[in-house]
Every structure is written in C-alpha cells, then in structure tokens.
Simulated assay, not measured.
Amino acid sequence: MSVAEKLQRKEMRQTSSRQVRLKLVYVDVWSLVKLTFLIWLCLGIVLLVASVLIWVVLYSTHVFDSLDKTIRDVLNQPEFSIEKSFGIGQVALFAFIIAVLNTLVGTALGAVSGFIYNLSVRFTGGLLVGFQNQ
C-alpha cells in the first residue's frame, strides 16, 4: 500500500468536529501595547531598509544622473545635483525619523484601540468568535 493510498484512507475517515463559540469581552491593554510596538518596530525596520535599497538602486542605475541633466536643462542651474541634495545619509536619517514616529504613534493607537474596545464591550457584549476542532 502506497503512502498516497494511506493518506486517502485517512481523509475518508469521519472525525467528529466540535464547534465552540466564545466571546472576546476583554483585551489586555498592556499586551496589546507590546504587540503593536513590535509590529510597528518591524515595519519601521522594513521602511528603513527599503528606503536605503531604493536609493541604492536609483543611484546604481544612474537615474539620478538623468534627472540631474533634465533639471539642469529646464532650470538652467549648472550646479544642481540630486545626489548632493538627497544623499544616502539624508534619506536614511529621514526614513529613521519617520520609522520612529510611526512606531510611537502606532503604539499609542494600539493602546487607545484597546481602551476603546474594552469600553465598547459594555455596550456591544463583545466579539463573538467561533472555533472548530478538527
């Protein structure tokens, strides 16, 4: 008997599935704050890495040189350079500042949403969640 036949026989067996319905009536705000902090921290790291990688790709494909030439022709400014105006350090610093602000604001919004949910449970009775055992 092959493995495929054994698996097929297992699927044909009827298993009793039991469904449980639970209400979520309380969210621990501190746990929610920790979770949202970690999520926004990871997203901030992704933002920082993506910003630097996009800058490196644009620099290595000479997109900045093409834009410099076009802007110099349009504005008649021979000294203009995008690389000097928006260097990799400035881009990384700006992305870092935005990531820190997003982390702070996202964490605060997570705490506020936990408080709001706990207050709204008094009026709505909570969130009904169904689980099934397979």
Rank of each mutant, 00 (worst) to 15 (best):
I88G: 01
L93S: 08
V29Q: 02
L67A: 12
F64K: 09
M1N: 03
R72Y: 03
F123V: 10
Y26S: 10
R122I: 06
G89H: 00
A50N: 05
G106Y: 02
Q14C: 06
L58W: 08
Q19E: 13
I54V: 15
T61N: 06
F37N: 12
I39G: 02
V3G: 02
Y26E: 15
S51Q: 04
I71D: 01
F64C: 07
Y117L: 12
Q8D: 12
I97F: 06
V129P: 01
N102L: 14
K34E: 05
L104Q: 03
N133W: 05
L67Y: 09
V20S: 11
L53P: 00
G126K: 06
G87L: 04
L119W: 11
F123P: 00
F64P: 03
V74E: 09
R122P: 00
S51W: 00
A111T: 05
L53E: 10
Q14H: 10
L93W: 01
I97M: 07
L38M: 13
K69S: 14
T70G: 03
D68E: 03
E5V: 12
S81R: 01
V121I: 10
F96V: 03
Q90L: 14
R9V: 06
Q19H: 07
L22T: 08
Q14E: 13
P78Q: 05
V100P: 02
K23R: 15
F37R: 00
L47F: 07
G89T: 05
L32C: 10
T107W: 03
T124C: 03
V52D: 07
V46E: 08
P78Y: 01
N118M: 07
L24P: 01
L53Y: 04
Q90D: 11
C42Q: 07
V25Q: 14
V112K: 06
K23M: 11
T70L: 12
F131I: 09
C42I: 15
S2Q: 02
G110D: 04
V105W: 05
G110C: 04
S17L: 07
S51N: 10
L22V: 11
R13M: 14
S81E: 00
V112R: 08
K10T: 09
K34F: 07
F37L: 15
N133G: 01
M1D: 09
M1F: 07
V49S: 02
G125C: 01
S16M: 13
M12A: 15
V29P: 01
V63K: 11
Q19F: 07
K69R: 12
D65R: 07
G106H: 04
L119A: 15
V91L: 06
L127H: 09
